[in-house]
Amino acid sequence: MIKLSVNGQSHDVDVEDDMPLLWVLRDELGIKGPKYGCGIAQCGACTVQIGGVAVRSCQVAAGDVDGEVTTIEGLGSPQALSAVQAAWIEHQVAQCGYCQSGQIVNASAFLNENNNPTDEDIDNAMSGNLCRCGTYPRIREAIKTAAKTLRNS
């Protein structure tokens, strides 16, 4: 049994130590926000936070998880949006939307560290998250809006 705490809830899961966290979340716990895109740390669709740090959940073995896991569902909900989600809605970032859970989770972790990012900071923080639809210009805008909200709160 592996003990996990996800979005404030603890779980015991009976899986191989080397099952990637992504698949534990999706198929064992039914948490579908984190997406599978590549499985090899190239796309960022599976991004979650462990102890507040953004990680690629397809690359973290279930047995190695050593902190609280936060997925997009843990950041906010349609009824209670996080600042980053609200900015994503304001700028209507999503096209197909498939990459956006990962983008938002990654951006949230990054903005918690740095709520006044330069363009270069944004480029560095966000370039591991692939968007096939090409929503990058709006991702940049939404991050700036969210940063402002976070600075003012």
Binding site: K32, G33, P78, L81, Q85, I89, A94, G97, Q100, I104
Partner: peptide, 12 residues
């Protein structure tokens, strides 16, 4: 506002 935008921004 696109119909799907909130769902796509909340992982739902």
């Amino acid at each position: 506002q696109r119909h799907d935008i909130v769902a796509k921004s909340t992982g739902t």
